[in-house]
Design a protein around this nucleic acid. Sequence first.
DNA 1: GTGAAAGCGCTAACAT
DNA 2: ATGTTAGCGCTTTCAC
Lengths: 336, 336
Amino acid sequence: MTNIYEIAKKVGVSHMTVSRAFNNPELVGKKTKEKIFKIANELNYRPSMVAISMRTKKTYYIGLILPDIINPFFPEIVRGVDDFARKSNYNVILVNTDNDYNIQNSSLNMFSNRRIDGIILSGIAGGKKDNIFINEIISRNIPVVLIDRYIPELNSSYVITNNQKAAYDATSYLIKLGHTKIGVISSPQKIKIFQDRLKGYKSALINSNIEFNEDLIIEGEESIKSGYITTKALFNRSNKFTALFSMCDFMAFGAYQYCRENNVSIPDDISIISIDDIYASALLTPPLTTMAQKKYDMGYIAAKILIDCIRKNKIPKKQVILEAQLIERLSCKKII
Amino acid sequence: MTNIYEIAKKVGVSHMTVSRAFNNPELVGKKTKEKIFKIANELNYRPSMVAISMRTKKTYYIGLILPDIINPFFPEIVRGVDDFARKSNYNVILVNTDNDYNIQNSSLNMFSNRRIDGIILSGIAGGKKDNIFINEIISRNIPVVLIDRYIPELNSSYVITNNQKAAYDATSYLIKLGHTKIGVISSPQKIKIFQDRLKGYKSALINSNIEFNEDLIIEGEESIKSGYITTKALFNRSNKFTALFSMCDFMAFGAYQYCRENNVSIPDDISIISIDDIYASALLTPPLTTMAQKKYDMGYIAAKILIDCIRKNKIPKKQVILEAQLIERLSCKKII
DNA sequence: GTGAAAGCGCTAACAT
DNA sequence: ATGTTAGCGCTTTCAC
């Protein structure tokens, strides 16, 4: 591959003039510049980012760690990150950890070796291991922005949804439709954002003087299958409910599946609301009413914060909270 | 960040001994080696991939170009690529082109600058621009493997589904259920793989002595919206059909939407079969019967072919065709 | 089993 | 407006 020395030789200048022609064109004579560009073009010159990185200690790479690219929540985040990064001449190295801590940890070493400029980390499982992992990143002086999930004590950067408000709005919507017995299929409560969602649910009840009933809550995982199982378990309890608040669309899908199999009509027998709005939600029968998270924006903003900080050479400490938006479809019904 | 010189100084050897300890440990004395590893560990040494790339001309990066990461067809491919790449110590740089040729072209220049070792290219729109693009990659001596789409004349590597067979099997399945009037909502016929699918449809008809009727075919795009529009248009034609063959799940989703809005019952009034099997297909009411493509395998195999060739320093020329598999759900019904 | 020298392709710093 | 020198952190080659 041709380099600046080759061009320099052909044009009859030093390699520095060639370098300047590309990086500080105002310092190079017009005629020389033209010659250089012409020859560079002929030789198909491509400046080596590897050499530039070597010299400048900047790679213009950011690492993006995701737990599960198959979950349709994440591809939109990827797009947001990728769009802003590309605009800013950065590139994204994607790692799909499959919720495996070994992969996550080894990806950090890989990122260190590759001297990437910063990390966007999404989808923490909850628990001490996450704190250790994030602290390890920070102790290596790698700028990092968390996305979707956060850990308040760590005081790092993050971009998340206003989860409490989203759950509050979802629950209030059901209450407005006349529901007072509202079941909850909950995502893991060890994860902070799901605690926030439960808080939002409770405060909506309090706000309408509805008594909180522990028996209406059941906890599972963020999967379709778990949505199915928890819904079934909730129905098998003695308590009655007219509506269901699902903490994520995937679990709501499982609830749909249970209802279909057991001839429970949505929304005639039961209203369902959720949080996420992944694209399949609109395709269900009936289309799912849900609180839409701004997934693309999350990725875009996280990339913006990260790259801004990289450029200013400082540790990111910005915390952004995005509002979810009610998408009314057909899964909820007014009752008397 | 610490480098081999620092370690060498602390241990009291030359930097070359340190380098060897990591790369050719059998050439280094046991005691020396132990000391080196101990110090390296203490200093948190991370070998610079940038410097290694500089010297060896290998970056251990592969570029993955996708048209649309939001389309759930692609995340599974990403996982396949990423899994094999990680195992082989390669990393994936993802570019989401959004079907924009400008982004695609500039990503190629970026890949050249970054001296990536190879490219996996997916989702060609069809038309001359693709040939130009692929030829440009080849002329730059960058190993490339196509995925999902291919261009026969180019004789490059690819991993695709046996599209003709998949369409043949889907159509034959409908015929076996008693259908003879089978409408087709087709993806763009300028794209080779969709031509193949149409061929498969026709040959299944021929095989059962059913007359081919041009009026039962309608062409659209690969989107939910287009599935809706084409289905509507097909119903508005005078011809009658009892079953619908959709060339991709996204279009089938649009067909579902049209049927729901117009009280056409699936599968009682019309049977629908498709090709893809993206995860939402199982969630629809009724769950969609479709020919599952091996998406993960596609990515995995493409990465394998590419990395094998990179290692052997030769241009990939392997062509892999994967069989699709019928997933029987509830969208098709036997008729008299 | 270990070391010295050169060089990968650039840019920063200084010189003219 | 242009050139010279050194060095980023490694590996390759040759030497002992």
